[in-house]
Design a binder for these strands. Sequence first.
RNA 1: GCCGCGUUCGUCUAAGGGCUAGGACACCACCCUUUCACGGUGGUGAUACGGGUUCGAAUCCCGUACGCGGUACCA
Length: 509
Amino acid sequence: MEKKVRVRFAPSPTGGLHLGGVRTVLYNYLFAKQHGGDFILRIEDTDQTRFVPGAEEYIFETLAWCGLEPDESPKHPGPHAPYRQSERKQQYRQYAEELVQKGYAYYAFDTGEELDAMRQRLRTDENPSPQYDRTVRTQMRNSLNLAAEEVQRLLQENTPHVIRIKMPEGETVSFTDMIRGDIQFDTSVVDDKVLLKADGMPTYHLAVVVDDYLMEITHAFRGEEWLPSAPVHVLLWRYLFGEDKMPQWAHLPLILGPSGKLSKRDGAKYGFPVFAMNWHDPKTGELTEGFRERGFLPEAFVNMLAMLGWNDGTEDEVFSLEELIRRFSIEKVHKGGARFDYEKAKWFNHEWIKRQPVSAYAQQVRSIFAEKGIVISDEGYFTQVLELVKERCTMLADFWEHSYFFFKAPKDIDTSAVKSKWNDDKAAFFKGFAKSIMSVSNWNAASLEALFKQQAEAAGIKPGELQLPMRLMLVGGKFGPPVFDIAALLGKEETGYRINSALEEFERP
RNA sequence: GCCGCGUUCGUCUAAGGGCUAGGACACCACCCUUUCACGGUGGUGAUACGGGUUCGAAUCCCGUACGCGGUACCA
């Protein structure tokens, strides 16, 4: 029987989740759901020094906002708990020791100073960063060179040491990447990576392999930056569990900024978010703005991210999460990095604001209004207003400028556009119009417009010349939805009131 | 330096040997609209370079250039 698909995302809690990270989650999620499998979230918190409080919680919140809930995680443990590597610490050592027993790894007692000295000594123009590799290891303090008794003694005395993989010489390690196809490496040019650190924590290399095995991961997606260390992982699988049990790999292309790899700096420099949500770094006190706070809908964010490095071959590009699950295919993920374009991201948001019912984001718009001092009391009215203006909003914050005048009469009316053409006939028309609307029984945009035109003609004025003044009276400037739609929503009382009070403004010299 | 990955309009991309290289964002023009948008129509604009293979190459092969990643007791 085919094994159920299990994919995992393993972030390190060291900061906010940038675009590339969320996209990796997304592709993981899409692939898992598409195959009826599980999406597992594991936390790679093996480096205590880089751990940032709150970062794990932030990751959960981001995934929840995007709608990418894991099936198993530290929050919702499944059969393979725990999901934090710090809580799994004990199990890594035995695998590292096993590798030493089998001759695939060795103890290294070199101190940091000794490593520095080695790199200093060996550094040349041709070799700017010397590695701890098969040529260097013969000169270092490790169990390959030291006498067995000496190694025993050092171990018994609890001398700080690491366990390094012993990279074989002249072998070719190859594997098939789901996106890139066959990839080969010559083991002679790969160094002896540390597997178990002096503090007993595994490095990423040991941890992914052990955890993926223990958690029965079948497919592993990660960023392209991991490609160079893939041979280490393949070898570890071969030595420990058998390559046939190794998950299938997919190395995702990078997301680039305007110049090179997308960074937090790009966000600040070019004025766009690079994190899904606001990230407040407790260590530096620095705040990095998020897409959510900028006024992006999660649907738009996810949609935009999905299209950054994948395309289903059709010309469609607006997809819901459900549609993405249906259409996604890992083979169609691109090999080359994609440059993030904020303009296109805004376009996606505009599309989603237009096609979502306003109920999907009314709550957020309400808080924007509250910040500006407008408290919404009439839900039905609020909904109708949002529905009327949503097609002209790109960001949620845009709702304010496109609709605030529905909730408060304009204070200052910009009469400059009509002042020169203003005359007593027009004033008389509006006086009459304000009066007659009070008796309109069928209050809607169409009947209002009909009445307006009929009275304009009766007064001998072209209706077109009266529309702009009417707009200014209702909203205060040259903006907003069609005038009669505005009046229809405002109601006859408010419309009449605004016309009358604006008339005084128009009369002023 | 070494190793790996990549390269189609400004950007995201389609086309996996065969019609004038298609679409989207952005930009420009026109239409619609007596506000601003939405929308509609059209336009500018690309196969990095050089060699092969082939009747035929964006597509396959080789080389060059450029970009990116890795080269930590970080992930």
